[in-house]
Computed example of a mutant assay.
Amino acid sequence: MWGMNARRIIVVAYDSAELLDFACVTTPLTIANLVGAAPPYEVRLATPGGKAVTWGTGFTIEAQETLERVTGPLDTLLVCGGIGHQAAAADRGLVAHVRRLARESRRVASVCTGASILAAAGLLDGRRATTHWHWAPDLAARYPAVAVDPDPIFVRDGQVSTAAGVTSALDLTLAFVEEDHGADLARQVARQLVTYLQRPGNQAQMSMFTAAPPPGDGLVRRIVDHVTGNLATDLGSATLAAVAGVSERHLSRLFLRHLGRTPARFVREARTEAAAHLLVATRLPVAAIAARCGFNGAETLRQAFADRYGVSPSHYRATQSRPSPARRLRAAAS
């Protein structure tokens, strides 16, 4: 039985779904209840046929609801991802019931490759959406009506939200808690989870310095190393082409082939990410960070930050910086 005044949450899973996708949603909502969410969340796991789920990790959990029998209205419908997502997206019965329940839900969401199931149900047509960076090209190829953006950790387009890889579900769920119950309660949940309040949705899934192995082309790899080691210097296309010993046009072709971006875009993203690191790790003024990272002033950095992360440098610093140990001790004592 559902509670009379509860926010009804259905999490849809299937065999070989990802257990962490489930936990990163259900645990924050449970903690929100413990710290005073009113009305509280009531979360139930629904599966095809009401069968127990054997997660991708090999563990098994019993379902509380049979997907085919669930009816609305629902507060939130959320679909997990996992290594079984392709089989789930090809299951016409599962997809049909997700489509049906979406019509009876205040908001709809997916985690990771769960986006493929929303896409199969037609729920992402004409919408911007994200998924795990590794699966983004596949999602875009299979569902051309979806505007797939592989960069953000989550995307909210109207009533439909899509979170990227696995733990980004934590960020999206905290955003839901803040929307439902305010920033103070969301902050309490984040403290209990020992995590950031929430990363901005437009924050990149992966660091460009660590996300992928070095480019396969030796010349591109050499220029990438030159860029990341000399951010404050002249990194214009002509300069980089001279360092590489090739024409600007040929260097651009190589970058597009191996990195999917032009040299100019790579430089801008490298500088922006380096600035993001300095904003969190240091107390340098924004103008000093802009100069150190090769930007022509604080305003240029602000524009690059808005394009990359969707927030200003000052907002990013305020939300992402960890207090010093002394400040944490003082806060704990107060």
Rank of each mutant, 00 (worst) to 15 (best):
R322S: 09
L254H: 07
A32W: 06
A333T: 08
E248G: 05
Q192C: 15
G201Y: 03
A287N: 09
D91P: 00
A102E: 05
D21S: 08
T319P: 01
A52Q: 04
G297V: 08
R92C: 00
C80E: 03
I223M: 10
V35G: 09
A264R: 07
L174N: 08
R142V: 11
T300F: 08
E179P: 02
A96F: 06
T262K: 08
A212F: 13
L94W: 02
G165L: 14
V267T: 13
P152T: 15
Y143K: 14
R257I: 04
Q203I: 05
T27R: 09
S247L: 09
R8A: 04
R128G: 08
G36N: 09
C112A: 07
R317N: 05
T76V: 04
R261S: 08
L284I: 10
R330V: 10
N202S: 14
R249Q: 15
D157Q: 11
A115V: 03
V189M: 10
D125W: 05
D157F: 07
A244E: 05
I31M: 11
S116Y: 14
A120I: 06
W133D: 01
C80V: 13
A291C: 06
A136E: 12
A88V: 03
T66D: 03
E273K: 14
A88S: 00
M208F: 08
H315C: 09
V286W: 03
S110N: 02
P39D: 15
V25Q: 02
G236I: 13
D125E: 12
T66Y: 02
A63E: 04
T131N: 10
R249K: 15
A281I: 05
R156C: 09
L219D: 06
D149I: 03
L240K: 13
T233N: 14
I289F: 10
V166D: 00
R292W: 02
V227K: 13
T27G: 05
A23T: 15
R265G: 00
E248C: 05
A290C: 09
A37T: 11
R199P: 01
S110K: 03
S321K: 08
N202Y: 00
R221M: 07
V79Q: 01
S321E: 00
P285N: 14
E42P: 00
L78F: 02
D234E: 11
P325R: 11
M4G: 01
K51F: 02
R69Y: 07
V224R: 06
G218Q: 15
I223S: 07
Q192R: 15
I289K: 10
L34C: 07
Y309C: 06
A276L: 12
P214R: 10
A23W: 04
L74E: 02
V35N: 12
A129G: 12
S237N: 13
T195M: 07
A89F: 00
S207F: 10
A232T: 09
A290M: 10
